[in-house]
Every structure is written in C-alpha cells, then in structure tokens.
Nucleic acid binder design. Structure first.
Lengths: 335, 335
DNA sequence: GTGAAAGCGCTAACAC
DNA sequence: GTGTTAGCGCTTTCAC
C-alpha cells in the first residue's frame, strides 16, 4: 500500500485532531449537523474551512453507496436541441448537490451502452435523452438503476415527453386561417419518437381543418438536408406552406428558397419545430416552441424523486408546445 | 454499518470465490494482467463477465487515488462555440478510458469556483474553457491539480489557444482586395482573452493594408446585441465592411441589415468569427474559421499528458485560424 | 505467479 | 451529543 498522504490532502482525522473530537463527530457535522450541538458544528466547520478540508466523495460513496453523481446521456451534444436541456438539467442537479457526468453517444447505441456501463457504478441514476438504445436495453437498465427518459415513451419508466400536439395544432390552425389549403410536412428520422408524434399531430390537425397534406421524408435532420429538399418542396405545385421536423431543416429550407429567389412568406410559408433558433434566421422563423430547458429541469426533478424513493408510480410528464408566429408565415399565395 | 450487499452488486470476492483464488489475483487480472499467468487472467475475465462483475470505481479510487475522471468546465454550454469543443474533448477522454464531468458555470466566476471545488476530489484534472476566474484562482488550482486551459493564456499552465491572427489577417486582406478602405470591428467582452486577440489582430492587419478602422463595442456578444448594433454600424458613413467578434453577433447584424433592406454584400460586407454557424445564414456567412473541436481534443491530450507526468514544460499549443469566404463579402460599394 | 492482510477516508451501528 | 469501531470494495506491499 502506498501512503499517498504526503502532500496536501486534509482528511477527516486532521480535522478531528485539530478540534479534539472524534472523526464520527466531524463526519456528522457534515452529513447530519442537526444531531450535534450547534457549537460543535460551528467549530468543526470553522476548522474544516481553515484547514481546507473537503470530504472525499470516493470514501463517502464507498461507505454509503451514494455517490452524489448522476449522468446525462444524449446522442449528440452538437445538436442545438440538447444544450439548453443539458444546461437546465445540470443546473438543477447542481442545486440539489449532485455533480453530473456527460455522455455523448455519437448517435450510436453501442457506444451509448458502453458509456452507461462505464458510468453505472459512479452514478446514482441516469437521464437518457433521445436514447438510441432498444426498449429492452433501457428497461434492463431501469431495473438496476433509476433512469429518467426524455422523449422516449416506455411505460414503467419515469419520462418527460414533449408533446407536439398543441403547438402543431396551433401551427396548422394558423396556416388555415391564413388561407392555406395545401401544406407539406418534411419529416425527420422514422425511428425518432419525436418525429412519430409530430407527423401524427400534423395529420390529425390537417384532417380537422380539412387541409390537404403531403409528406416529404428526409435523411439526417439537419441544415443541409433542409436545403437539399427545397426542389422537392417546390415541386409540390399547390403547396403554399411547409412544416418541418425541426428548426435546422426549416433553416436549410429557408436558405434553399432564398437562393432561388423565392419570397418567404409571400410565396411559401415555413414553420419549424423546437424553436431553438430563436429569432436568428431572416425572416425570423415561425416555430413550434418547446421548453427544452424545462424538459431538462423536469427530468432531473423526476430522477431526484426516484433517488429518494418517491418515484412510486408510472410517471409520464408531458410538456406542452405552442406556436410562436414570426416572419416566415403569411397569407397563402393565390395561384 | 448497513450491509448493502443485498441485491445484485457483484464484488471482487464473488469472483475470487467462483475462481477459487484470492481477491488479489482477481484485482491483478484487471489492473496488472501481465503479472499473471495468461490462463489465470482468462479464467478471471470469463468468470467476471459471467457474473457481471465490474470493479467499483469508488473503492478503486479510494485505494489508488486515481478516479479515472476528468472535468470540463465552461461558461455556457448553450453558446454554440462550446458544444463541438465539448464533444471532441469528451470523445477523446472516453477513448482514453476517462469519464467526464460537465460543469456549466453560467458565466459566473463564483459558481465556477464552487463547481470546481465540488469536483476536485472526484477528478484527476480539469479542462477550463474560457474560464471566468481570475488568474490567481486558476494558478492556485493549477498548483493542486492538473489543469489545461482553453483560450486563456497563463504562463506555466498547459493551454490551447485559438490564435485569430492568420484568419483575421486573411479576412482583412480579402476585404482590401475587394476594394474596401474603411472597415469596422464590432468588439466582444473586454475581459475576454479572445476578444483582445481579435481586436489586436484586426488593428495590426488594417495598419498593414492601410485600411481605416473603427471599433464598436458591444455588450454581451449574442444575436440580439448584433441586431441592436446595426444602427451604429450604418452610422459609420464610409465603412463598407464589418468584422464582428463572433458569428452570433454577425448573424444578428445580418438580420438587422436585412430588416432595413440593406443588401449584403452589395452595400455592406460582413465577416464573423468562429465559423460555428456553418453555411446556415443567408447569405452564407464569411467567417474566420477555427477548429474548436480540435481545441477540445488537444486540451484533453495535454491533460492526459499531465496526468502521466509528461506535462513537463510550459506547453502553449496554438491553433491557427483561416478565412472561409462565403456569401457575405463582396466588392466595396462605391459611394 | 499467487495469497494474506493492511489500509485508502469515510459512515453508521452501537455504546455510553 | 459524542466516541469506538467495524466495515464499504479495492489495491498493494510482503511473504511464500
């Protein structure tokens, strides 16, 4: 055994000795202060500060089985949907005293599983955002450790879902009121739960408002694909408005249209989803807004409850969406 | 003491017992396999797999003092400059067997210090990207633990710097060749190392090419500020081209110009910095490009070396920048 | 090449 | 309210 106590590293014994008390008392001063006389706590705290003592989390974890850590795993941190979510989740975790591990699975379920495996023993629970793993794998994980899902609907696991129904309903109604009769939906990855929800919501709303709907599939949902789909969108002769799977696609489409000199919204209205671009496009993008930061915050809250055995039931927390009308939507052109 | 060994949780003893050997051997099979007979290693590995054994990192950390974790701390994960950097750093760390903690300081040096304090004992080292802490604090931290800086130039600490000189030099030359004589620089936060470098580079290049330079300060560098600065930019009568602190500001400026019907690049050329928007604006933004992902990867590499005592000298790794000319720059208008 | 045993720093019974 | 003490699961000297 190497005694690594050489440089720095103040430990509990140092504080105990300095205070002339036992290590147990020092320990309690940190974890259960209410058990001690206030003066004792104060003394310990003072000395600890003075010496620069900080409880060793590894030792604490070993003894208690609680690490004070959680992990957030997501497919691609560079996708603008995730940073706000991650930011909120990490802030909430921090406020609750947890530190957070980040795992970027790079859109790969194998990598995702590996990452999770590597982190399991160091965390009390996981937040899985848009997981790429199979339901089976996720359920298995959930049996071993607290898990909260974001945008994945598996009964039995606490989950936060962003429900596009209202926002898309409002979008379609907005278009309908502007006189649009023929619209298109540029869809995202078939495997994506979010895309399934969005596509379904568009269909339902169009039926309700008696609009004719065309659907255009896209590969990887990003700016480039959005730009590339422009021709196909324009080929849909009577279509006067487009709703896209997400903002990146809408953004790409806007660029494609601008390159061709197509006036938005005069010639074509465009609506995005996620509202992560804010007003940063020109014209500013009308989008179905979702509080993705709220999703992150909520996910942590659910996890926190799970960690304190307050999980209990089958929690399915649904976040609403709404329409933010900006500059890319206008009256239907008259052919 | 509560024996929490009830459910699951295979530990080293289980494997040792199953193999009919000592825990020491099992331990070595994982950390020093070359010390053992190959057959022994194979046996242990097989059994461990079978039982689903995974060494407990906390116990290991307690015993060895190495946690296999690092932390990346940054001011705002929602700033588009950071996700690619974070992504690359985390990927590199993962490949080297490290797990990564994420700390978002929310642009606040106090929070940053608190986060770091909470993480210190759980990590072997830190990557501080665009730290908001004082040099003194950072140096102090560096004395206790391996630290690598990104975009912060403190002698004695390993650091990765994105040097805007070449890129901005090329940008100014590009403008000069297009016939621009009067240009403006919309500057970022005075406290930002990056802004200092960029401003200096613009000044120097303008002197070289005999261009007249005006500087416009901005508050928080983001889209909104960029849009708000539009009037002031237009008030600079003879100015025909603008370089902005970063892409967000450029993006906002483009929006502000478009709202006023100012044609880019015919009436005004615009160049951003960081190139994080890709070709996603319209017109596509000419920008000074920097491999921020490379900065993340490199930072981890330096940290990794530090962790293995190969840090040695005063490492100052400088990344070059270059110009990506797209659609927002063109010949100077003739007044 | 392998085992026995002493810790790593902390917490939690259990006494007092 | 506070101290004593036995671990938490792992690694690492020493022996052999």
């Amino acid at each position: 055994m190497t005694p690594r106590r050489s440089n720095a590293a103040i430990i509990i014994d140092d504080v105990a000795r300095a205070a002339g008390i036992s290590t147990a008392t020092v320990s309690r001063a940190f974890s259960r202060p209410h058990m001690l006389r206030p003066e004792t706590v104060a003394l310990v705290r003072k000395l600890a500060d003075q010496l620069g003592y900080q409880p060793n989390p590894a030792a604490r974890a070993l003894s208690t089985g609680r690490q004070g850590n959680i992990a957030i795993v997501l497919p691609d941190i560079a996708n603008p949907f995730f940073p706000p979510l991650l930011r909120a989740a990490q802030a909430a975790a921090d406020a609750a005293g947890y530190s957070v591990f980040l795992g970027d699975s790079d859109e790969n379920s194998t990598r995702e599983a590996r990452l999770i495996g590597k982190l399991t023993m160091q965390v009390e629970g996981f937040i899985l955002a848009s997981s790429r793993m199979t339901n089976r794998k996720i359920v298995e994980l959930g049996e071993r450790q607290p898990v909260v899902l974001i945008n994945r609907d598996i009964p039995g696991l606490p989950r936060v879902l962003i429900d596009p129904a209202k926002g898309i309903g409002a979008a379609v109604e907005h278009l309908s009121q502007l006189g649009h009769k023929n619209i298109a939906y540029v869809s995202g990855p078939a495997a994506s739960w979010s895309n399934q929800q969005r596509e379904y919501a568009v269909e339902k709303s169009c039926a309700k408002h008696k609009l004719r709907l065309r659907t255009l599939p896209i590969g990887h949902p990003d700016f480039e694909s959005g730009r590339e789909i422009t021709e196909k969108v324009l080929a849909l002769k009577r279509v006067t408005a487009v709703i896209t799977f997400d903002d990146s696609v809408a953004h790409g489409l806007l660029a494609g249209l601008a390159e061709r000199g197509i006036d938005v919204p005069r010639a074509l209205s465009v609506i995005g989803c996620d509202d992560v671009l804010g007003a940063s496009t020109y014209p500013a993008l009308t989008s179905v807004s979702a509080r993705c930061d709220e999703a992150g915050r909520l996910a942590f809250e659910l996890l926190h409850k799970s960690l304190n055995d307050e999980g209990g039931d089958d929690i399915r927390s649904v976040l609403d969406t709404w329409l933010v009308a900006r500059g890319t939507t206008g009256p239907a052109r008259i052919d």
